[in-house]
């Protein structure tokens, strides 16, 4: 009974964060900020949901824990690949006045080499 309550709390928090992640993708101005919302909120969303189910179905707990670890490992790698790919494709980050883009210099140097 206690396990069930803990499980439902985890699932609720997870679903809430998944919703906020989706809202963030909708509200943010450019691809990099969207990646921030999309990857961060969904990490805790996914982990929360999975761990919560682990509490509801104790016999699955270790299986779900391994899945959670794989999510935590693969999530930053995929978001890094997406960010780097979109920058190389020519998308530039949205910046307010006086913003800084230290990567632009590296990118220009690389393009000149080619």
């Amino acid at each position: 009974m206690v396990l069930e309550i803990i499980g439902y709390i985890f699932v609720t928090v997870g679903v809430l964060f998944l919703f906020l992640g989706a809202l963030g993708i909708f509200r943010m101005p450019d691809v990099f900020s969207r990646l921030q919302a999309g990857t961060k909120a969904t990490t805790l969303g996914g982990l929360g949901t999975i761990i919560g189910i682990g509490f509801l179905q104790p016999e699955w707990f270790w299986k779900l824990l391994i899945i959670a670890v794989f999510i935590a490992i693969s999530n930053p790698i995929s978001s890094h690949a997406l960010a780097r790919g979109s920058y190389k494709k020519g998308l530039r980050p949205y910046m307010k006045e006086g913003g800084i883009d230290a990567y632009a210099a590296v990118q220009e140097a690389e393009e000149e080499k080619e």
Binding site: R27, S33, Q36, A41, A104
Partner: peptide, 23 residues
């Protein structure tokens, strides 16, 4: 912390962000 931080920025009506790429 990161998740709460992003969640706070997303629900704030003013969208308090100042993005950029740093080295």
């Amino acid at each position: 912390k990161a998740n709460f931080d992003v969640a706070r920025r997303v629900v704030d009506p003013k969208l308090p962000i100042n993005p950029g790429i740093v080295e």
